[in-house]
Design a protein around this nucleic acid. Structure first.
Lengths: 159, 159
DNA sequence: TCTAATCTTGACATAAAAGTAAGGATTTGA
DNA sequence: TCAAATCCTTACTTTTATGTCAAGATTAGA
């Protein structure tokens, strides 16, 4: 249950765009430099993000990337889905061991855990927009914990 | 943000042991067969789980594996940590791109997200024991959602 | 129209994760 | 004491994810 490299760097690239002013753009070279990755790698990530509809690109001199909509309207849950090519649907068809289908046919105590976990993560991510990640570390951390603090508290009470 | 193969199969093997009666054990061959994986693979997973202190193994004829403590006392958070070799600590040292250290030195809006997400997942997992995963799919699903339903509700209220 | 700057795309190389194999170590029971 | 059954450990192979490269396509501006 780790974040993948593609998720991490893709999100970072997107945040670079989110921090731009109106009408500003960044080229692949800019992004690569700012995130300390190769231009080729940045290119691939931006291509994914473009396909996912988060950024728009213009080619040619004076070209570059910018967000395709305001950072307030881009939720982490969507971004992660695109970057990690996330499909919980096919899970039970892919983890079959050496067999043709999962051995836990019909009734399975693990499936709800896998799916439930996925829900929890998606849920947490769907509360957060790119815009909320722009401040300083301290501010972002506070925001993040304010959002999820509620969950924490209620569980403790519930116990 | 996916569950790894090692996490999935490791957890399943552990559940096989959790479903045993008192004084029963399973050999690698048994476990492999029940989960539809190779014996070699089961061996590796059980070795990890043994190192992690979740199971005890006895060698020789009549040997096999059993849980090292009651399934009520084994939390998913611990199991996952062992199976995925989960270390959020070193995160900022490993995702450095081509550089020696992460470009987001000092102040970083992404770190709290990565760490926060990790917290959320760990938190969800630390509410669940192996014992709670033993029933039928329906029951397990209900249990899972009863635990996390609270979180969901409070967030909606909070909004 | 031409050139330089830029994104796009698919093929390729490299690194990491997953899975396999084989020989060694330990235990039971004859 | 010996043999069979079992776990343990390390090295290797295969598969998957990551990252790179090079040629192509598009645009702005001279």
């Amino acid at each position: 249950m780790k974040i993948s490299a593609q998720e991490e760097y893709g999100l970072r690239c997107l945040l670079q765009l989110a921090s731009l002013g109106e009408d500003e753009t960044l080229t692949l070279g800019d992004i690569a430099k700012k995130e300390g990755i190769s231009q080729a790698n940045a290119g691939k990530l931006m291509w994914l993000l473009n396909k996912g509809g988060f950024v728009k690109a213009t080619r040619g001199t004076k070209g570059g990337y910018s967000l395709s909509r305001p950072s307030k309207e881009i939720y982490l849950s969507e971004v992660i889905k695109v970057l990690d090519d996330d499909e919980i649907e096919g899970h039970c068809e892919s983890y079959t061991g050496v067999l043709d289908s999962c051995v836990h046919k019909g009734d399975c105590g693990i499936r709800p855990v896998i799916i439930g976990l996925h829900e929890i993560v998606q849920n947490a991510l769907s509360d957060i927009t790119l815009a909320q990640l722009l401040g300083t570390e301290k501010k972002v951390d506070e925001r993040f914990h304010r959002i999820h603090g509620l969950k924490q508290v209620s569980v403790n009470i519930g116990k």
